[in-house]
């Protein structure tokens, strides 16, 4: 039985080895290799010059995650309380943008946020002062929230839906008002969903590159853009690019480990 299972997993094992493990090893190898092909820590000392990019990436990803959580949790909770047509419609509206290519969506945001874009036309129509938002970090954060919101809502919704209705009734039965039931039962039981939602927004958020280029106007360069430059741009330097990737990965792993510590009290409720 066990052997059989191993066999069934073989295609994926091969896939993993070819496209995950070996590339990772290559990244590590390049990160510690200089242009002369020798072992070096030099790539990492160069990283110090990019502290601002690291800082901005993590800060914007964290900001987008917090906004996604603030918007997404209430939405997920509200959706979990609806049934039938209302919930299906909400789900459709949530998913609809994801069926459109991310580049198209981001270009659309560009034309909305431009200095003479839709947003400012609307504001001037309402006789309000225009806003300068395009090419600022705020525009990048907005773009990230827009693109990643479904990844926050869906895991939270799934977990809230799975909470046994009789547990909620039990809490009401024991004297819990709607607020108490939410605070003491639904919220703690939905934390695993929050954890996976945060992971699914924060991790891709840190390495975002196209959103920051289009909406941040190059002034809000993020790690993703920096890495792209090393591999595809004029400053071709895969060694430095690998080092940046490696450090970013390590920082993300550490953040996830810290996050999971928070959720440890809920270990019996499995994480998605």
């Amino acid at each position: 039985m066990k052997k059989r299972g191993g066999l069934l997993a073989a295609p994926y094992t091969v896939w993993m080895a070819l496209f995950t493990v070996i590339p990772m090893l290559l990244v590590v190898y390049f990160a510690f290799t200089g242009e002369d092909g020798r072992f070096t820590f030099g790539n990492f000392s160069q990283l110090l010059g990019y502290g601002a990019v690291f800082g901005r990436s993590f800060w914007l990803a964290a900001l987008a995650t917090v906004v996604c959580l603030a918007v997404g949790y209430p939405l997920a909770y509200a959706m979990s309380r609806e049934t039938g047509a209302v919930r299906n419609t909400a789900m459709l509206l949530l998913m609809l943008p994801m069926w459109i290519n991310i580049l198209l969506r981001t270009y659309a945001w560009m034309s909305i946020l431009e200095n003479k874009g839709l947003l400012n036309q609307l504001l001037s129509f309402l006789r309000l002062p225009p806003v300068r938002i395009i090419n600022t970090p705020a525009a990048v954060a907005l773009g990230m929230v827009y693109n990643y919101l479904p990844f926050m809502v869906l895991p939270i919704l799934t977990v809230i839906q799975k909470i046994d209705g009789s547990v909620i009734e039990a809490a009401q039965d024991l004297g819990g008002s709607q607020f108490t039931v939410f605070k003491r039962v639904i919220l703690p039981l939905s934390l695993p969903g929050v954890l996976s939602g945060v992971t699914m927004v924060f991790v891709p958020g840190v390495s975002t590159f196209i959103i920051s280029q289009l909406l941040g106007g190059g002034k809000s360069m993020m790690l993703g853009d920096l890495i792209e430059m090393q591999f595809l741009g004029s400053t071709y330097n895969p060694y430095l690019g690998s080092a940046i990737s490696l450090v970013m990965m390590v920082i993300v792993l550490i953040s996830m480990a810290v996050m999971n510590r928070f959720g440890e009290g809920e270990e019996e409720v499995m994480v998605l």
């Binding site: 046994d164 009789s166 547990v167 009734e169 039990a170 809490a171 009401q172 039965d173 024991l174 004297g175 819990g176 008002s177 108490t180 039962v185 703690p188 039981l189 009290g265 809920e266 019996e268 409720v269």
Partner: peptide
């Protein structure tokens, strides 16, 4: 009168204990 304001408590069929 909602359940939380009744002086009645319930033992549920599948216990409905709080897993957390």
């Amino acid at each position: 009168v909602p359940p939380h304001k009744r002086r009645v408590n319930t033992v549920f069929q599948k216990y409905a204990l709080f897993p957390h």
